[in-house]
Computed example of a mutant assay.
Amino acid sequence: METVLSKHSPPSAFKGLSKEEEESLLGQIEIWKYMTQFTDSFALKSVVELRIADIIDRYGKPLSLTQIVQNLDDAPSPDSTLLLRIMRVMVRRKIFSSEKSETGETLYGLTRASKWILQDTKMTLAPMLLLENHPFHLNPANFISDIIREGTKNGTAFFRCHGHEQFEMTGLDPKYNELFNQGMVCTARIVSRAVIAGYKDGFNQIQSLVDVGGGIGGSLSEIVRAYPHIQGINFDLPHVVETAPKFDGITHVGGDMFVSVPSADAIYMKWILHDWSDDHCIKILKNCRKAIPEKTGKVIIVDHVLDPEGDEPFTDTGIAFDMMLLAHNAGGKERTEENWKYLFKETGFPRYNIIKINALPSIIEAFPI
């Protein structure tokens, strides 16, 4: 079939194809793209494990492949040809920059993205990246079709893969527990900074604040540092808080949020409710409702508000997190505003407010009156 293009038609990358044939080929290309997209993740994981961004940052200037290889830690026989192929991907994805030196060597430099995988800095996503790319997190994806067919009555995809649910695994495997906590701490720093900047006066009237599911206290320590008048209570499972460091103004308390929550002026929960089913969330929120004052109390939820039709910077990441939760958690999911509204209605919070901040999650305030 002859292809006829008007002078107003956009140029095509393909020659000699009809519109129908071109559409079919573009569809094929899209499937190839998504089929192989995981390779970006394992390339990125490898450069984090090799600390390549830190090597470049240490020198304060772009480096050649030879210079990078010479600075690899614990590398008795490094293969620069393999690393070249990884760096080629990372340059393509703009994780690193590349430029030619006067001698013709390629020099690799940091970009705005690679600065977020530095490990020798507090503001980093490197631990979270290693957590999300750990086999414990990736392998359950192989069981997603099974739970769609059969439901989760026989366990989540995570359980079918590992024989334990995710939060059981943190108690059974100390190395995984440490990796999990490090991932939570690094995101706590980043998100807490956005919360403090975006919540403005939201913490001013609070004298006592409980961080439910607060891990080892990373989020709460940032809040108390910014608002030293607040008496903080970091609340999590006993095996979690027993590894928590000491922070000024914070008391660590072990317990079970499905049984009760310590009393305070306000409750803070960062990325907790998205891990649980609606029934689980209703239990948690009812316990929070009992723990705060009737007239002045509030629950401050830092979680994503999913907008499947949205086009904001973090929309695709929120949808990706929803897929991870599908594999990892018993009913966990990212929730739309309607989903959040339902939870509040069921748990005695007639009023809520959503505050968008410069981060993946939003702040969702829930009030008992």
Score class of each variant (00 low, 15 high):
residue 201 D to G: 05
residue 111 T to K: 00
residue 14 F to M: 09
residue 326 L to H: 08
residue 185 V to T: 15
residue 148 I to C: 02
residue 235 F to W: 09
residue 237 L to S: 11
residue 301 I to T: 09
residue 146 D to P: 00
residue 80 S to V: 08
residue 284 I to F: 09
residue 338 E to N: 11
residue 44 L to Q: 13
residue 338 E to C: 03
residue 171 G to F: 06
residue 22 E to F: 01
residue 272 I to F: 09
residue 232 G to S: 05
residue 118 L to R: 05
residue 64 S to M: 07
residue 262 P to G: 10
residue 339 N to D: 15
residue 305 V to L: 11
residue 39 T to K: 07
residue 78 P to L: 08
residue 103 T to D: 10
residue 104 G to E: 09
residue 107 L to M: 00
residue 274 H to T: 12
residue 164 H to R: 15
residue 237 L to M: 12
residue 359 A to G: 08
residue 174 P to L: 11
residue 92 R to T: 14
residue 151 G to Y: 00
residue 369 I to H: 15
residue 253 V to P: 02
residue 207 Q to G: 11
residue 243 T to A: 14
residue 241 V to C: 11
residue 78 P to Q: 11
residue 121 T to G: 03
residue 235 F to L: 12
residue 289 R to C: 07
residue 98 S to C: 01
residue 281 C to S: 15
residue 269 M to T: 12
residue 277 S to P: 08
residue 120 D to C: 02
residue 327 A to Q: 14
residue 142 N to R: 13
residue 261 V to R: 04
residue 46 S to C: 06
residue 14 F to N: 07
residue 243 T to P: 00
residue 68 I to N: 04
residue 62 P to M: 07
residue 150 E to L: 00
residue 48 V to I: 15
residue 150 E to R: 00
residue 29 I to V: 06
residue 8 H to L: 03
residue 306 L to C: 10
residue 164 H to N: 12
residue 351 R to I: 05
residue 213 G to N: 05
residue 77 S to Y: 13
residue 334 E to P: 00
residue 64 S to V: 03
residue 37 Q to P: 00
residue 162 H to F: 13
residue 7 K to E: 14
residue 72 L to N: 10
residue 76 P to K: 14
residue 136 F to C: 05
residue 322 D to S: 12
residue 253 V to E: 15
residue 75 A to P: 02
residue 292 I to H: 10
residue 5 L to E: 15
residue 357 I to V: 09
residue 7 K to I: 14
residue 59 Y to I: 01
residue 253 V to N: 05
residue 281 C to P: 12
residue 346 E to R: 09
residue 327 A to P: 03
residue 39 T to R: 09
residue 363 I to L: 14
